[in-house]
Nucleic acid binder design. Structure first.
Length: 409
RNA sequence: GUGGCCGUAGCUCAGCCCGGUUAGAGCGCCAGGUUGUGGCCCUGGAGGUCGCGGGUUCAAGUCCCGUCGGUCACCCCA
Protein backbone atom coordinates (compact mmCIF):
# COMPACT_ATOMS: atom_id res chain seq x y z
CA UNK A 1 0.00 0.00 0.00
CA UNK A 2 1.57 3.26 -1.08
CA UNK A 3 -0.46 5.66 1.06
CA UNK A 4 -0.35 5.91 4.79
CA UNK A 5 -2.02 8.42 7.09
CA UNK A 6 0.09 11.60 7.17
CA UNK A 7 2.83 11.80 9.76
CA UNK A 8 1.45 12.21 13.24
CA UNK A 9 -2.07 11.08 12.35
CA UNK A 10 -3.85 7.75 12.65
CA UNK A 11 -7.05 6.02 11.66
CA UNK A 12 -9.78 4.81 13.99
CA UNK A 13 -11.03 1.69 12.25
CA UNK A 14 -12.47 -1.67 13.21
CA UNK A 15 -9.92 -4.46 13.29
CA UNK A 16 -6.87 -2.32 13.93
CA UNK A 17 -4.44 -3.69 16.47
CA UNK A 18 -3.61 -0.50 18.36
CA UNK A 19 -5.87 0.58 21.25
CA UNK A 20 -5.78 4.14 19.93
CA UNK A 21 -7.60 2.90 16.82
CA UNK A 22 -10.38 1.05 18.63
CA UNK A 23 -13.74 2.49 17.51
CA UNK A 24 -15.56 1.19 20.58
CA UNK A 25 -13.47 3.19 23.03
CA UNK A 26 -13.81 6.34 21.01
CA UNK A 27 -17.53 5.99 20.72
CA UNK A 28 -18.01 5.50 24.43
CA UNK A 29 -15.62 8.31 25.44
CA UNK A 30 -17.21 10.81 23.09
CA UNK A 31 -20.72 9.72 24.03
CA UNK A 32 -19.96 9.92 27.73
CA UNK A 33 -18.55 13.38 27.23
CA UNK A 34 -21.80 14.67 25.74
CA UNK A 35 -23.71 13.25 28.69
CA UNK A 36 -21.52 14.92 31.28
CA UNK A 37 -21.27 18.25 29.49
CA UNK A 38 -25.06 18.47 29.28
CA UNK A 39 -25.41 17.45 32.90
CA UNK A 40 -23.36 20.51 33.82
CA UNK A 41 -25.37 22.73 31.51
CA UNK A 42 -22.93 23.10 28.62
CA UNK A 43 -24.67 23.00 25.23
CA UNK A 44 -22.92 21.83 22.09
CA UNK A 45 -20.72 24.44 20.46
CA UNK A 46 -19.17 24.07 17.03
CA UNK A 47 -16.65 26.48 15.57
CA UNK A 48 -14.49 26.12 12.45
CA UNK A 49 -11.40 23.95 12.60
CA UNK A 50 -9.53 26.76 10.90
CA UNK A 51 -9.45 30.40 11.82
CA UNK A 52 -7.59 33.56 10.94
CA UNK A 53 -3.96 33.12 11.95
CA UNK A 54 -4.04 36.35 13.86
CA UNK A 55 -6.72 35.05 16.21
CA UNK A 56 -4.30 32.50 17.61
CA UNK A 57 -1.30 34.81 17.55
CA UNK A 58 -3.15 37.34 19.66
CA UNK A 59 -5.30 34.97 21.64
CA UNK A 60 -2.97 32.12 22.51
CA UNK A 61 0.03 34.40 22.73
CA UNK A 62 3.24 35.07 20.85
CA UNK A 63 5.58 33.64 23.44
CA UNK A 64 3.97 30.22 23.50
CA UNK A 65 5.62 27.31 21.77
CA UNK A 66 2.29 26.49 20.18
CA UNK A 67 2.18 29.75 18.26
CA UNK A 68 5.87 30.16 17.50
CA UNK A 69 6.61 26.66 16.25
CA UNK A 70 3.60 24.42 15.98
CA UNK A 71 0.92 26.07 13.90
CA UNK A 72 -0.39 24.66 10.66
CA UNK A 73 -0.52 27.95 8.80
CA UNK A 74 -1.17 28.49 5.11
CA UNK A 75 -2.43 31.10 2.72
CA UNK A 76 -5.78 30.41 1.12
CA UNK A 77 -6.66 31.29 -2.47
CA UNK A 78 -7.88 34.68 -1.37
CA UNK A 79 -4.53 35.56 0.18
CA UNK A 80 -5.74 35.23 3.77
CA UNK A 81 -3.47 33.68 6.37
CA UNK A 82 -5.32 30.71 7.80
CA UNK A 83 -4.35 28.39 10.65
CA UNK A 84 -5.72 25.01 11.65
CA UNK A 85 -6.80 25.46 15.25
CA UNK A 86 -4.10 24.35 17.72
CA UNK A 87 -6.55 24.57 20.63
CA UNK A 88 -10.22 25.21 21.14
CA UNK A 89 -10.60 28.19 23.44
CA UNK A 90 -9.70 31.07 21.13
CA UNK A 91 -12.27 30.04 18.54
CA UNK A 92 -15.05 29.61 21.06
CA UNK A 93 -14.36 32.98 22.69
CA UNK A 94 -14.33 34.56 19.24
CA UNK A 95 -17.67 32.95 18.45
CA UNK A 96 -19.15 34.21 21.71
CA UNK A 97 -18.03 37.76 20.98
CA UNK A 98 -19.30 37.60 17.39
CA UNK A 99 -22.68 36.42 18.65
CA UNK A 100 -22.82 39.53 20.81
CA UNK A 101 -22.92 37.39 23.90
CA UNK A 102 -24.02 39.07 27.09
CA UNK A 103 -24.00 37.54 30.50
CA UNK A 104 -22.89 34.14 31.67
CA UNK A 105 -22.52 31.74 28.77
CA UNK A 106 -21.52 28.10 28.52
CA UNK A 107 -20.34 25.97 25.62
CA UNK A 108 -18.97 22.46 25.17
CA UNK A 109 -16.92 21.35 22.21
CA UNK A 110 -15.40 18.16 20.86
CA UNK A 111 -13.15 17.86 17.86
CA UNK A 112 -9.73 17.63 16.29
CA UNK A 113 -6.91 20.09 17.00
CA UNK A 114 -3.70 20.46 15.01
CA UNK A 115 -0.13 21.11 16.03
CA UNK A 116 2.90 20.63 13.86
CA UNK A 117 5.48 18.88 16.02
CA UNK A 118 7.47 15.66 16.16
CA UNK A 119 4.95 12.96 16.95
CA UNK A 120 5.45 10.36 19.63
CA UNK A 121 3.29 8.25 21.87
CA UNK A 122 0.31 10.28 23.03
CA UNK A 123 1.31 13.28 20.95
CA UNK A 124 -0.09 13.63 17.47
CA UNK A 125 -0.31 16.30 14.82
CA UNK A 126 -4.04 15.83 14.73
CA UNK A 127 -5.43 15.08 18.15
CA UNK A 128 -8.86 15.16 19.70
CA UNK A 129 -9.91 17.43 22.50
CA UNK A 130 -13.17 17.76 24.33
CA UNK A 131 -13.66 20.82 26.45
CA UNK A 132 -15.87 23.52 27.85
CA UNK A 133 -15.72 27.27 28.19
CA UNK A 134 -17.61 29.28 30.79
CA UNK A 135 -17.63 32.92 29.71
CA UNK A 136 -18.55 36.14 31.41
CA UNK A 137 -18.11 34.27 34.63
CA UNK A 138 -15.78 35.82 37.15
CA UNK A 139 -16.55 34.10 40.43
CA UNK A 140 -14.38 31.28 41.80
CA UNK A 141 -17.30 28.87 41.82
CA UNK A 142 -17.19 28.93 38.03
CA UNK A 143 -13.62 27.61 38.21
CA UNK A 144 -14.69 24.95 40.66
CA UNK A 145 -17.59 23.84 38.51
CA UNK A 146 -15.42 23.52 35.41
CA UNK A 147 -12.85 21.53 37.35
CA UNK A 148 -15.55 19.32 38.81
CA UNK A 149 -16.88 18.51 35.34
CA UNK A 150 -13.44 17.37 34.24
CA UNK A 151 -12.93 15.38 37.39
CA UNK A 152 -16.31 13.64 37.26
CA UNK A 153 -15.92 12.78 33.61
CA UNK A 154 -12.41 11.39 33.92
CA UNK A 155 -13.44 9.42 36.98
CA UNK A 156 -16.54 8.06 35.25
CA UNK A 157 -14.63 6.79 32.21
CA UNK A 158 -12.08 5.27 34.56
CA UNK A 159 -8.73 6.96 34.03
CA UNK A 160 -6.45 5.14 36.49
CA UNK A 161 -4.42 7.11 39.00
CA UNK A 162 -6.19 10.37 38.32
CA UNK A 163 -4.63 13.37 40.03
CA UNK A 164 -5.63 17.02 39.92
CA UNK A 165 -2.88 19.63 40.16
CA UNK A 166 -3.75 23.19 40.96
CA UNK A 167 -2.02 26.55 40.94
CA UNK A 168 -2.71 30.24 40.69
CA UNK A 169 -0.87 32.37 38.17
CA UNK A 170 -2.05 35.76 39.47
CA UNK A 171 -3.46 38.54 37.36
CA UNK A 172 -2.50 41.88 35.82
CA UNK A 173 -2.48 43.33 39.33
CA UNK A 174 0.11 41.09 40.95
CA UNK A 175 1.82 39.12 38.22
CA UNK A 176 3.95 41.92 36.70
CA UNK A 177 5.69 42.61 39.99
CA UNK A 178 6.22 38.94 40.57
CA UNK A 179 7.66 38.47 37.09
CA UNK A 180 10.20 41.22 37.75
CA UNK A 181 11.19 39.49 40.96
CA UNK A 182 11.41 36.14 39.19
CA UNK A 183 13.42 37.53 36.28
CA UNK A 184 15.89 39.05 38.69
CA UNK A 185 16.23 35.74 40.47
CA UNK A 186 16.72 33.90 37.18
CA UNK A 187 19.21 36.42 35.82
CA UNK A 188 21.32 35.94 38.94
CA UNK A 189 21.60 32.26 38.00
CA UNK A 190 21.88 32.70 34.27
CA UNK A 191 25.10 30.63 33.96
CA UNK A 192 23.49 27.60 35.55
CA UNK A 193 20.41 27.52 33.39
CA UNK A 194 20.04 25.64 30.13
CA UNK A 195 20.07 27.51 26.85
CA UNK A 196 16.33 27.31 26.32
CA UNK A 197 15.62 28.65 29.77
CA UNK A 198 17.99 31.60 29.31
CA UNK A 199 16.08 32.52 26.18
CA UNK A 200 12.82 32.28 28.08
CA UNK A 201 13.81 34.68 30.87
CA UNK A 202 12.87 37.70 28.82
CA UNK A 203 10.03 36.09 26.90
CA UNK A 204 8.12 34.19 29.56
CA UNK A 205 10.05 33.60 32.78
CA UNK A 206 7.21 31.57 34.25
CA UNK A 207 7.93 28.73 31.91
CA UNK A 208 11.50 28.45 33.18
CA UNK A 209 10.01 27.11 36.39
CA UNK A 210 8.64 24.25 34.34
CA UNK A 211 12.07 23.21 33.00
CA UNK A 212 13.09 19.82 34.35
CA UNK A 213 16.74 20.33 33.52
CA UNK A 214 17.01 23.53 35.51
CA UNK A 215 14.84 22.35 38.37
CA UNK A 216 17.72 21.58 40.77
CA UNK A 217 18.94 25.19 40.59
CA UNK A 218 15.55 26.73 41.17
CA UNK A 219 14.47 25.17 44.43
CA UNK A 220 14.36 28.51 46.24
CA UNK A 221 12.80 30.46 43.39
CA UNK A 222 10.06 32.89 44.37
CA UNK A 223 6.62 31.43 43.83
CA UNK A 224 3.57 33.13 42.41
CA UNK A 225 1.31 31.86 45.14
CA UNK A 226 3.41 33.71 47.74
CA UNK A 227 3.02 36.94 45.81
CA UNK A 228 -0.66 37.08 44.95
CA UNK A 229 -2.62 40.26 45.43
CA UNK A 230 -5.52 40.12 47.86
CA UNK A 231 -8.14 39.55 45.19
CA UNK A 232 -6.22 36.69 43.59
CA UNK A 233 -5.44 35.12 46.93
CA UNK A 234 -9.10 35.21 47.93
CA UNK A 235 -10.11 33.76 44.58
CA UNK A 236 -7.61 30.93 44.85
CA UNK A 237 -8.60 30.17 48.42
CA UNK A 238 -12.24 30.06 47.47
CA UNK A 239 -11.59 27.60 44.64
CA UNK A 240 -9.68 25.33 46.97
CA UNK A 241 -12.37 25.51 49.63
CA UNK A 242 -15.14 24.55 47.26
CA UNK A 243 -13.10 21.69 45.75
CA UNK A 244 -12.72 20.34 49.26
CA UNK A 245 -16.44 20.69 49.84
CA UNK A 246 -17.03 18.79 46.58
CA UNK A 247 -14.71 16.06 47.77
CA UNK A 248 -12.34 16.54 44.89
CA UNK A 249 -8.76 15.85 45.96
CA UNK A 250 -6.06 18.10 44.52
CA UNK A 251 -2.37 18.70 44.83
CA UNK A 252 -1.23 22.28 44.96
CA UNK A 253 1.66 22.66 42.53
CA UNK A 254 3.42 26.04 42.61
CA UNK A 255 5.44 25.05 39.53
CA UNK A 256 2.43 24.32 37.39
CA UNK A 257 2.66 26.62 34.39
CA UNK A 258 0.54 26.11 31.36
CA UNK A 259 1.95 26.43 27.89
CA UNK A 260 -0.52 28.97 26.60
CA UNK A 261 -0.06 32.63 27.45
CA UNK A 262 -3.65 33.55 28.20
CA UNK A 263 -4.04 31.98 31.62
CA UNK A 264 -4.68 34.12 34.69
CA UNK A 265 -5.36 33.10 38.24
CA UNK A 266 -6.50 29.48 38.32
CA UNK A 267 -4.50 26.92 36.33
CA UNK A 268 -4.94 23.19 36.63
CA UNK A 269 -3.97 19.91 35.08
CA UNK A 270 -5.31 16.39 35.26
CA UNK A 271 -2.57 13.77 35.39
CA UNK A 272 -2.88 10.04 34.83
CA UNK A 273 -0.20 8.95 37.26
CA UNK A 274 0.00 5.46 35.79
CA UNK A 275 1.04 6.81 32.40
CA UNK A 276 4.60 7.63 31.41
CA UNK A 277 5.49 11.19 32.24
CA UNK A 278 5.80 12.02 28.55
CA UNK A 279 2.06 11.78 28.01
CA UNK A 280 0.55 11.74 31.48
CA UNK A 281 -1.28 15.05 31.15
CA UNK A 282 -4.77 13.98 30.13
CA UNK A 283 -6.29 17.41 30.48
CA UNK A 284 -5.87 20.90 31.72
CA UNK A 285 -7.29 24.34 31.78
CA UNK A 286 -7.73 27.47 33.74
CA UNK A 287 -8.98 31.02 33.83
CA UNK A 288 -8.30 33.52 31.07
CA UNK A 289 -9.71 36.87 32.08
CA UNK A 290 -7.72 38.80 29.49
CA UNK A 291 -8.24 36.65 26.42
CA UNK A 292 -11.33 38.35 25.02
CA UNK A 293 -9.72 41.76 25.19
CA UNK A 294 -6.53 40.56 23.56
CA UNK A 295 -8.51 39.53 20.49
CA UNK A 296 -10.32 42.85 20.35
CA UNK A 297 -13.47 42.18 22.34
CA UNK A 298 -14.81 43.70 25.49
CA UNK A 299 -13.52 42.42 28.80
CA UNK A 300 -14.94 38.93 29.28
CA UNK A 301 -13.60 36.87 32.14
CA UNK A 302 -13.82 33.15 31.57
CA UNK A 303 -12.61 29.76 32.59
CA UNK A 304 -12.24 26.58 30.58
CA UNK A 305 -11.10 23.04 30.37
CA UNK A 306 -9.70 20.79 27.67
CA UNK A 307 -9.20 17.05 27.84
CA UNK A 308 -7.02 15.07 25.45
CA UNK A 309 -9.12 12.14 24.29
CA UNK A 310 -6.15 10.43 22.60
CA UNK A 311 -4.39 10.30 25.95
CA UNK A 312 -7.48 9.10 27.76
CA UNK A 313 -7.71 6.26 25.25
CA UNK A 314 -4.09 5.36 25.95
CA UNK A 315 -4.72 5.51 29.69
CA UNK A 316 -7.65 3.13 29.41
CA UNK A 317 -6.12 0.57 27.04
CA UNK A 318 -8.30 -1.76 24.98
CA UNK A 319 -11.65 -3.03 26.12
CA UNK A 320 -13.66 -5.79 24.55
CA UNK A 321 -17.27 -5.01 23.87
CA UNK A 322 -19.85 -6.77 21.74
CA UNK A 323 -21.12 -4.54 18.99
CA UNK A 324 -23.97 -6.73 17.75
CA UNK A 325 -26.73 -8.77 19.36
CA UNK A 326 -27.43 -11.45 16.77
CA UNK A 327 -25.41 -13.16 14.05
CA UNK A 328 -27.40 -15.01 11.40
CA UNK A 329 -26.10 -18.25 9.90
CA UNK A 330 -28.01 -19.17 6.75
CA UNK A 331 -28.02 -22.61 5.19
CA UNK A 332 -30.17 -21.34 2.36
CA UNK A 333 -28.07 -18.50 1.06
CA UNK A 334 -27.21 -14.93 1.89
CA UNK A 335 -30.41 -13.60 0.35
CA UNK A 336 -32.52 -15.23 3.05
CA UNK A 337 -30.21 -13.91 5.76
CA UNK A 338 -30.55 -10.40 4.34
CA UNK A 339 -34.33 -10.54 4.68
CA UNK A 340 -34.26 -12.12 8.12
CA UNK A 341 -31.76 -9.52 9.32
CA UNK A 342 -34.01 -6.78 8.01
CA UNK A 343 -36.90 -8.01 10.15
CA UNK A 344 -34.80 -8.08 13.33
CA UNK A 345 -33.11 -4.77 12.60
CA UNK A 346 -36.45 -3.04 12.25
CA UNK A 347 -37.23 -4.36 15.71
CA UNK A 348 -34.15 -2.56 17.00
CA UNK A 349 -31.72 -5.44 17.26
CA UNK A 350 -28.11 -5.11 16.11
CA UNK A 351 -27.68 -7.82 13.51
CA UNK A 352 -24.99 -9.00 11.12
CA UNK A 353 -24.51 -11.89 8.67
CA UNK A 354 -22.26 -13.07 5.85
CA UNK A 355 -23.09 -11.69 2.43
CA UNK A 356 -20.38 -13.64 0.59
CA UNK A 357 -22.01 -17.05 0.47
CA UNK A 358 -19.30 -18.72 2.52
CA UNK A 359 -19.62 -22.16 4.02
CA UNK A 360 -21.84 -22.79 7.03
CA UNK A 361 -18.74 -23.54 9.04
CA UNK A 362 -17.21 -20.20 8.09
CA UNK A 363 -20.46 -18.48 9.05
CA UNK A 364 -20.34 -20.07 12.49
CA UNK A 365 -16.79 -18.92 12.95
CA UNK A 366 -17.82 -15.41 11.99
CA UNK A 367 -20.65 -15.65 14.52
CA UNK A 368 -18.15 -16.49 17.22
CA UNK A 369 -15.81 -13.70 16.28
CA UNK A 370 -18.58 -11.14 16.10
CA UNK A 371 -19.11 -11.41 19.83
CA UNK A 372 -22.86 -11.65 19.36
CA UNK A 373 -24.51 -13.33 22.33
CA UNK A 374 -27.04 -15.02 20.08
CA UNK A 375 -26.63 -17.04 16.91
CA UNK A 376 -29.64 -17.60 14.72
CA UNK A 377 -29.54 -20.53 12.28
CA UNK A 378 -32.00 -20.56 9.42
CA UNK A 379 -32.68 -23.11 6.70
CA UNK A 380 -35.14 -21.15 4.61
CA UNK A 381 -37.45 -18.17 4.86
CA UNK A 382 -40.59 -20.02 5.82
CA UNK A 383 -38.96 -22.46 8.19
CA UNK A 384 -38.63 -21.90 11.93
CA UNK A 385 -35.24 -20.65 13.02
CA UNK A 386 -32.84 -22.17 15.49
CA UNK A 387 -31.92 -19.66 18.22
CA UNK A 388 -28.77 -20.34 20.22
CA UNK A 389 -27.72 -18.35 23.23
CA UNK A 390 -24.88 -19.75 25.26
CA UNK A 391 -25.76 -23.39 25.84
CA UNK A 392 -29.47 -23.20 25.12
CA UNK A 393 -31.19 -23.87 21.82
CA UNK A 394 -34.73 -23.10 20.86
CA UNK A 395 -36.74 -23.31 17.69
CA UNK A 396 -39.30 -20.63 16.88
CA UNK A 397 -40.73 -18.64 13.97
CA UNK A 398 -38.55 -15.71 12.89
CA UNK A 399 -41.30 -13.24 13.82
CA UNK A 400 -41.06 -14.25 17.48
CA UNK A 401 -37.32 -13.84 17.87
CA UNK A 402 -37.31 -10.14 18.78
CA UNK A 403 -39.98 -10.54 21.43
CA UNK A 404 -38.25 -13.59 22.81
CA UNK A 405 -34.94 -11.74 23.05
CA UNK A 406 -36.47 -8.71 24.70
CA UNK A 407 -38.13 -10.96 27.23
CA UNK A 408 -35.06 -13.05 28.04
CA UNK A 409 -32.08 -10.74 27.76
C1' G B 1 14.73 21.35 16.03
C1' U B 2 18.18 17.14 18.54
C1' G B 3 19.08 11.87 19.60
C1' G B 4 18.17 6.20 19.94
C1' C B 5 15.72 2.04 17.66
C1' C B 6 13.12 -0.21 13.52
C1' G B 7 11.35 -1.01 8.03
C1' U B 8 10.81 -9.09 5.65
C1' A B 9 3.16 -12.28 4.33
C1' G B 10 -3.12 -8.63 6.02
C1' C B 11 -1.03 -8.25 11.52
C1' U B 12 3.19 -9.37 15.20
C1' C B 13 7.93 -10.82 14.22
C1' A B 14 12.43 -14.57 13.32
C1' G B 15 16.35 -14.78 9.63
C1' C B 16 21.10 -10.02 9.09
C1' C B 17 26.36 -10.12 13.57
C1' C B 18 29.62 -15.25 10.69
C1' G B 19 26.70 -13.05 2.59
C1' G B 20 25.34 -18.91 -0.89
C1' U B 21 20.04 -24.01 -3.54
C1' U B 22 12.54 -23.00 -4.03
C1' A B 23 12.76 -16.57 2.47
C1' G B 24 10.20 -18.88 7.63
C1' A B 25 6.85 -18.94 12.27
C1' G B 26 2.52 -17.48 15.06
C1' C B 27 -2.09 -15.08 14.46
C1' G B 28 -5.63 -13.90 10.64
C1' C B 29 -7.92 -15.49 5.87
C1' C B 30 -10.01 -19.71 2.48
C1' A B 31 -11.27 -25.05 2.03
C1' G B 32 -11.62 -29.77 4.43
C1' G B 33 -11.59 -33.37 8.85
C1' U B 34 -13.50 -33.94 13.96
C1' U B 35 -17.95 -31.90 16.54
C1' G B 36 -24.53 -32.04 19.50
C1' U B 37 -23.70 -27.94 11.92
C1' G B 38 -19.29 -22.93 15.28
C1' G B 39 -15.91 -21.79 19.44
C1' C B 40 -10.81 -26.51 21.16
C1' C B 41 -7.95 -29.73 18.04
C1' C B 42 -6.02 -31.76 13.11
C1' U B 43 -4.88 -31.38 7.55
C1' G B 44 -4.26 -28.60 3.23
C1' G B 45 -4.27 -23.85 0.54
C1' A B 46 -3.87 -18.68 -0.96
C1' G B 47 -0.69 -14.65 0.26
C1' G B 48 6.00 -11.60 0.18
C1' U B 49 8.75 -5.77 -5.37
C1' C B 50 12.63 -8.61 1.99
C1' G B 51 10.76 0.35 2.16
C1' C B 52 13.33 2.72 -2.18
C1' G B 53 18.05 3.92 -4.95
C1' G B 54 23.05 3.14 -5.61
C1' G B 55 27.68 0.39 -4.34
C1' U B 56 30.95 -4.06 -2.95
C1' U B 57 30.83 -9.36 -4.62
C1' C B 58 30.83 -14.97 -8.83
C1' A B 59 26.55 -14.32 -5.36
C1' A B 60 23.06 -9.30 -1.07
C1' G B 61 16.95 -9.95 2.97
C1' U B 62 22.12 -10.43 5.01
C1' C B 63 27.92 -5.94 4.09
C1' C B 64 28.64 -0.26 2.78
C1' C B 65 26.54 4.68 1.38
C1' G B 66 22.36 7.56 0.46
C1' U B 67 17.21 8.35 0.74
C1' C B 68 12.15 7.90 2.35
C1' G B 69 8.95 6.12 6.11
C1' G B 70 7.71 4.48 11.06
C1' U B 71 8.52 4.56 16.27
C1' C B 72 10.33 6.12 21.09
C1' A B 73 12.68 9.89 23.93
C1' C B 74 14.32 15.17 24.67
C1' C B 75 11.79 19.88 24.09
C1' C B 76 6.75 21.25 24.58
C1' C B 77 2.03 19.92 25.47
C1' A B 78 -3.66 17.32 25.50
Amino acid sequence: MSFRPPKGTYDVVAGASQPISDPQIWRSLLGEWEVWAERFGYPLTMTPVFESTELFERGVGGSSEVVTKQMYTFEDKGGRSITLRPEGTAGVVRAFLNAGGQGAWKGAYSGPMFRYERPQKGRYRQFWQVGVEYLDAEAPDADSEVIELGYRYLTAVGVPGLELRLNSLGDSECRPAYLVQLSTYLNDRREKLCEDSVDLIDVNPLRVLDCKVCEPYLTDAPEMTDNLCDACRDHFQSVKTSLEALNIPYVQDPRLVRGLDYYTRTAFEFIGTELDAAQNAVGGGGRYDGLAESIGGRRTPGVGLALGVDRIVIALGSAEAASIDVYIVSESGAGDALLAASVLRQDGLRVDFDTEGRSVKAQFRAATRSGAGTTLVMGGLDKPVDVRTGGSRLTMPLEEVSDWMNATL
